[in-house]
């Protein structure tokens, strides 16, 4: 493995380490649950992304063939992480906020945490 390849791998590992650390520090520093939610969404994007890119470069240099496992991990993360964040945010809204704490929904119906959906689904 050449010097440039090793340097590239090291750079990506350091980037991901730094963003993972900052994301975790955000968990301590920020003051309520929704604010803290912003920390982990960062750790899962650039933090994990950096490790995955470094891993792809490493195995390409080592075996000479592209490994697709890293792309799959990215795909699975992008499918699952938003859903978890969304559930936590929704629970926070339901448990800690009242309708008047939130801005108006700008449509005829309120936010779905408090309001029932319309009786008949609109025809598309």
């Amino acid at each position: 493995m050449g010097f440039v390849t090793e340097l590239l791998i090291a750079v990506f590992l350091v980037i991901s380490g730094v963003f993972g650390l900052v994301g975790s520090y955000g968990l301590i520093k920020l003051k309520d649950s929704v604010q803290r939610l912003h920390g982990p969404t960062k750790a899962t994007t650039l933090g994990v992304g950096g490790v995955l890119i470094a891993s792809m470069i490493y195995f390409f240099a080592q075996n000479g063939q592209l490994s697709v496992h890293e792309l799959l991990i990215t795909l699975f993360l992008f499918l699952t992480a938003p859903i978890t964040a969304n559930f936590i945010a929704k629970t926070y809204v339901a448990r800690h906020l009242r309708p008047r704490d939130l801005p108006d929904s700008t449509s005829e119906y309120g936010w779905s945490v408090y309001d029932d959906p319309p009786e008949t689904i609109r025809d598309e």
Partner: peptide, 9 residues
């Protein structure tokens, strides 16, 4: 972070 939709989407 997206939190919720309005009831009618």
């Amino acid at each position: 972070v997206s939190a919720t939709l309005s009831a009618d989407g």
